[in-house]
Design a protein around this nucleic acid. Structure first.
Length: 221
DNA sequence: CACCAGGCAAGTA
DNA sequence: TACTTGCATGGT
């Protein structure tokens, strides 16, 4: 039962890894860059996020204190290509301000804090929800937290591996309860789910016949 | 042309 | 509590 399900989750991982190979996530050279990307990619194509990050880099603004003190409207202009630029400028500011207030502006202090309190502090920021918080913790801080997104829900519910009505927390519990606690595994697994969703598990035009997950369980999409 | 993208908060009933 | 809507650019 739970043993078989455990096997199924690992089997899915193995199939995806065999098919796609290592994904080398997260794109981004520094922890700050990854954190910025985590906010900018909310409901947004990564290609557009890269343009916005490129704008900041080009202006030499990809530093904690420069971003913290940059006027909101100026920041919004750099973020424009990533969409929702006004709200994202505010959200990024909120996040930077929280780190300034609670961790003396040091990302390392945030990452060295207990998972319990770093996650709760991230979630206290207006504009940082569970996926953004967990993405920062997993990809920037290398903490063993499984990141859930709409792709995770779509792929796993279509394959009858989780109930359709599962929410973020229950999905995360499902993954973390059934996989070894390993940040590198969680990193790769999430990236592989995104890869398979983009190529084979699209909302409108799924290509189930060619999907590497075909036949992984009884039921399939 | 329609639809989608590595969410989240605020508004409504 | 349980939906719905706004936010916005750019790729397919």
């Amino acid at each position: 039962m739970s043993k078989e399900k455990n096997d199924a989750f690992l089997k899915v991982y193995d199939r995806l890894y065999e098919f796609f190979g290592p994904q080398k996530w997260w794109p981004g050279e520094t922890a700050l860059e990854m954190m910025v990307g985590a906010v900018l990619t909310q409901n947004t194509n990564w290609v557009n996020v890269e343009k916005a990050i490129g704008n900041l880099k080009g202006a030499g603004l990809l530093s904690f204190s420069l971003l913290l003190h940059l006027p909101l409207d100026d920041l919004a202009e750099y973020l424009r290509p990533s969409g929702y630029y006004n709200i994202k400028a505010k959200r990024l500011k909120n996040l930077l301000q929280m780190i300034e207030d609670r961790y003396e502006g040091e990302l390392e202090r945030l990452f060295d804090d207990t998972l319990e309190s770093s996650r709760s502090n991230l979630l206290s920021v207006k504009g940082v929800g569970p996926e953004t918080a967990d993405s920062i913790l997993l990809y920037a801080a290398h903490q063993p937290v499984f990141v859930i997104d709409t792709y995770t829900h779509r792929v796993f519910s279509r394959h009858q591996l989780v109930p359709e009505e599962s929410d973020y927390h229950s999905l995360q519990e499902e993954f973390m309860g059934r996989l070894p606690e390993d940040a590198s595994l969680f990193n790769e697994y999430h990236a592989l789910i995104v890869a398979v969703a983009k190529e084979f598990c699209k909302k409108k035009k799924p290509r189930c016949k060619e999907c590497p997950l075909q036949g992984v369980e009884e039921e399939n999409c």
